[in-house]
Design a protein around this nucleic acid. Structure first.
Length: 665
RNA sequence: GCUGCUGUAGCUCAGUGGUAGAGCGCACCCUUGGUAAGGGUGAGGCCGAGAGUUCAAUUCUCUCUAGCAGCACCA
C-alpha cells in the first residue's frame, strides 16, 4: 500500500495526503477557514464524519453550513442525541430508544423511569436548558466500532431493554457503530455526526411538544413518550420557522370556517359537516366549475344509490377488505316495542357506500357495451361514508361523510395511456386555475391486495409510461415512486398540491384497475365479436369537496378569489338617508349576478369597514349622500386602503369581470 | 383505535369544595357619522354526560363522550 492517498476534490483538483488522513485533515490542508467551517464530508458520495479516516483514494466534498440540506440533517440528528443525553442526565433511569431527524426538526422516543410520571410539556424548559449546557460544553462526538455482543452487554447492564432488544436483532458480524458524546454518554447510531456538540447553535432549536408513540410503531408494544423539537442551523431560521407555524395557525380552516361562518362540526354528527349558507356557496361554485370541466372532457354525470346490499359489497371485495371502514345497516324494520333488541339476529346487512366504483360498474353493465362505446367516462359527485378511526378526524380534511368528484373511465387496454394523459392535462388545467403547483407521485402495490403480480406489473408500468410520455415524470414535477402506498385494487398516480405556505396536500389521483371489472363481470364486445374485459380508471381531481374547500381556505388564508367568495360585495351605508339609493343599487348588482349583501346598520362606517374587512369580503361598496346624489359608489377593495369612486354601472362591470370563474375568462 | 391534554354564555377565555365572571357578539335606547371598534342599558350558562367521595361537587375520583396534538390509518 502506498504512503499517500489521492483525494479528488469537487473543483477537479487532486490532493495527496498521508495514509490515514481524515476529511478534517484535508480541510486543514486547504485552509484554516475551511477547517473551522467543515461539518462533515461526502466521501464517494456518502455522508461521513469529518474525523473518520479515509480509506484509500477517494472523491471528497467537504460539507459546511452552506450545504444546507446536509447540514440541517446532521444538526437535527445531533439535536436528537443531545435531547436524549439531556433527558438521561436529568432523570437517570430513563430508557432511550430512537431519535431521528424529521422534516423540520427531530424527536426522540424515551420511556420515563418508573419513579416518575411520563414526561409532559412542563418538563420541556428544563430539558432545553440541559441541552444548551451540553451544546455549550462542546463535547466531541467520537465514532467507535463495537461488536453486537458488546452492545447487548452494555444495554442489558444499564437496563436499556429496548436498545438491548434492538441490538440483539442486528446482524452478528456487521461492524456496528456507537457515538460517544464526550467520555460519559453514548448511543448506538449509524451516524454520521458533527464533530462536536458545539457545532450546534444553542439558540436554534426549540422543544415543541410531547406525544405518545409506540415502541416500533406497534400499538401492542410499550408506550413511549416522543419528545418533538424543531431544529435549525441558526436562530434566524428557527424564528422564521416559528413564524411559519403561526401563519399556518392563522390559516387553520377550522378557525376561519368558524370566523367566516362557513360551516360547523358538532359531536352529534362528528366527522360530518354542517355547511352554512356561505360555506355551501363555495361548494356550489366548485360544483358548477367541475361540471363545466367534465362536460368539456367527455364525461357523463350519474347519481347512484347511497345504500347497497351487503352481497353487492361482498362481490366487489369491499366487504372483505374494507369492511372495518364501512357503516353497515340492518335490512329490517326496527322493533318499536320497548322490550327486546331493536334489530333481530336474523337481520340481513346493507351498507352505506364508502366508494362509488361498484355502482358505476353496475351502470356500465346495464345493456351490452360495444368497443365503440369506449372509452366510457362515468362521473358522479359521489357522497361516500367511511367509518374512520375517531383519532383520524380533522376538520374538513378528514371526515366520515364526504363527496368525491369521482369518475371511472371504462376503456380498452390500448386506450389507457391516452386516457391517463388526457387526465394529466385536465388536472393540470384545473390546479392552475386555483393557483396551485403540484407534484406527481406513483403509489405502488401494497402488501394487502387483489390481483396477480403480472397485472400489477402491467398496471404500474402503464401509469408510469403515461406520465413519462407526457413529460411529467421529472424532478421539476416532483416525480417520485412510493412503494407500498397503492390502493388494494390498483396502483395510483397521485397529485400533491403545494399551497401558499409550502405545505403539500394529496388530492387528485388516477388508478388503473383490472380487478373490479373482473369481480363484477364487466365486459364489452370487441371488434372481433368476442367479449372482452374493460380496464377501469378510477380518477378524482378535487379528491373530495370537503377537503378541497379546506385546502382552499388555508391556501388563500380565507381571502378566496372573488369568483369563489361567498359574499362578493357588501353595500354599506354611511347615513340612513342613503338606504333607498343603496337598496336600488343592490337590486342592480343582484340582477347582474353579483353575490351582494347589505349593511344598513346604525353603526359608523369605520365599524363597518373593520367588520367586513375581517370577514374577508372582497369588495366594500360604500354609499352616503354624496354617492346617492351623484349615482356613484365608493369601492374599497379588500387589502387596499384607497377607495375608488365610480358610477354604479362601472362598478357592476368591474365586479362582473372580477367574479368571472377562471375557466370562463 | 392508542397515548397525553382539554371541555365553563353564540365566540374567545378567567375562576371557585358553599350552584359563576370578562371581552366580543346579541337585544333595546341615545347617537346619522365619510373608510379598521361612538356611548348607555339589558338578556344569555343543568360549568360535556353518568356514577362515586362529601353535610355540600362546576371544582376531587372513576367511567363514558367529544375536541385538540401526536401515533397508526387515509380523499
Amino acid at each position: 500500500m502506498s504512503e499517500v492517498i489521492k483525494i479528488s476534490l469537487p473543483d477537479g483538483s487532486v490532493r495527496e495526503m498521508p495514509q490515514g488522513s481524515t476529511p478534517g485533515d484535508v480541510a486543514a490542508a486547504i485552509g484554516p477557514g475551511l477547517a473551522k467551517a467543515a461539518l462533515a464530508a461526502k466521501v464517494n458520495g456518502e455522508l461521513r464524519d469529518i474525523n473518520r479516516p479515509l480509506e484509500g483514494d477517494t472523491e471528497l466534498a467537504l460539507v459546511t453550513s452552506r450545504d444546507e440540506a446536509e447540514a440541517l440533517e446532521l444538526a437535527r440528528h445531533d439535536f436528537a442525541h443531545v435531547l436524549a443525553e439531556a433527558v438521561q442526565a436529568l432523570w437517570p433511569g430513563t430508557q432511550i430508544t430512537f431519535g431521528p431527524a424529521t422534516d423540520d426538526g427531530f424527536y426522540y422516543d424515551v420511556k420515563a423511569p418508573t419513579t416518575r410520571d411520563p414526561f409532559s410539556m412542563d418538563d420541556l424548559p428544563a430539558i432545553e436548558e440541559k441541552m444548551r449546557e451540553i451544546i455549550k460544553a462542546d463535547k466531541p462526538l467520537r465514532r467507535e466500532i463495537w461488536s453486537r455482543q458488546q452492545l447487548i452487554d452494555k444495554w442489558s447492564a444499564e437496563g436499556e431493554t429496548f436498545k438491548a432488544e434492538w441490538a440483539a436483532e442486528l446482524p452478528e458480524n456487521e461492524e456496528l457503530t456507537v457515538y460517544w458524546s464526550g467520555d460519559d454518554w453514548l448511543d448506538m447510531c449509524r451516524g454520521p455526526h458533527l464533530p462536536s456538540t458545539g457545532k450546534l447553535d444553542p439558540q436554534a432549536f426549540k422543544l415543541m411538544r410531547v406525544a405518545g408513540a409506540y415502541w416500533r410503531g406497534d400499538q401492542n408494544n410499550a408506550q413511549l413518550t416522543r419528545i418533538y423539537g424543531t431544529g435549525w442551523l441558526n436562530k434566524k431560521q428557527l424564528n422564521a420557522h416559528l413564524t411559519r407555524l403561526e401563519e399556518a395557525a392563522k390559516r387553520d380552516h377550522r378557525k376561519l370556517g368558524q370566523e367566516m361562518n362557513l360551516f360547523h362540526l358538532q359531536s352529534e354528527a362528528h366527522g360530518s359537516v354542517f355547511w352554512h349558507p356561505h360555506g355551501y356557496q363555495i361548494w356550489r361554485e366548485l360544483e358548477a366549475y367541475m361540471r363545466r370541466a367534465i362536460d368539456g372532457a367527455g364525461y357523463n354525470e350519474v347519481k347512484t344509490p347511497q345504500v347497497m346490499d351487503a352481497r353487492q359489497w361482498e362481490q366487489s371485495g369491499h366487504w372483505g377488505k374494507y369492511r372495518e371502514n364501512m357503516f353497515v345497516i340492518p335490512d329490517e324494520v326496527p322493533n318499536t316495542e320497548d322490550e327486546g333488541p331493536i334489530v333481530s339476529d336474523a337481520a340481513e346487512w346493507m351498507a352505506l357506500k364508502p366508494m362509488n366504483c361498484p355502482a358505476h360498474v353496475l351502470i356500465f353493465r346495464q345493456g351490452i357495451k360495444s368497443y365503440r362505446d369506449l372509452p366510457l367516462r362515468i362521473y358522479e359527485n359521489g357522497c361516500c361514508h367511511r367509518n374512520e378511526p375517531h383519532g383520524a378526524l380533522h376538520g374538513l380534511m378528514r371526515v366520515r361523510q364526504f363527496t368525491q368528484d369521482d369518475a371511472h373511465i371504462f376503456c380498452t387496454e390500448d386506450q389507457i395511456v391516452e386516457e391517463v394523459q388526457a387526465f394529466c392535462r385536465l388536472a393540470d388545467r384545473i390546479y392552475k386555475d386555483f393557483g396551485f403547483t403540484y407534484a406527481i407521485k406513483l403509489a405502488l402495490r401494497p402488501e394487502q391486495r387483489f390481483g396477480s403480480d403480472a397485472d400489477w406489473d402491467k398496471a404500474e408500468n402503464e401509469l408510469r409510461d403515461a406520465v413519462v410520455r407526457a413529460g411529467l415524470a421529472t424532478e421539476e414535477f416532483g416525480w417520485e415512486e412510493l412503494p407500498g402506498e397503492g390502493a388494494f385494487y390498483a396502483p395510483k398516480l397521485e397529485w400533491h398540491l403545494t399551497d401558499a405556505i409550502g405545505r403539500t396536500w394529496q388530492v387528485g389521483t388516477i388508478q388503473s384497475d383490472r380487478v373490479l371489472p373482473e369481480r363484477l363481470d364487466a365486459s364489452y364486445i370487441g371488434e372481433d365479436g368476442e367479449k372482452h374485459r374493460p380496464v377501469m380508471l378510477h380518477r378524482a381531481i378535487f379528491g373530495s369537496y370537503e377537503r378541497f374547500i379546506g385546502i382552499l381556505i388555508e391556501h388563500f388564508a380565507g381571502r378566496l378569489p372573488v369568483w369563489l367568495a361567498p359574499v362578493q360585495a357588501v353595500v354599506a351605508t354611511i347615513v340612513s338617508d342613503a338606504d333607498a339609493y343603496a337598496s336600488e343599487s343592490i337590486s342592480k348588482l343582484q340582477a347582474a349576478g353579483i353575490r351582494v349583501e347589505s349593511d344598513f346598520r346604525n353603526e359608523k362606517i369605520n365599524y363597518k369597514v373593520r367588520e367586513h374587512s375581517l370577514a374577508k369580503v372582497p369588495y366594500l361598496l360604500v354609499m352616503g349622500m354624496r354617492e346617492a346624489e351623484e349615482g356613484t359608489v365608493a369601492v374599497r377593495t379588500l387589502g387596499e386602503k384607497e377607495q375608488r369612486v365610480m358610477s354604479i354601472d362601472d362598478a357592476i362591470t368591474m365586479l362582473k369581470e372580477a367574479a368571472t370563474p377562471p375557466d370562463l375568462r
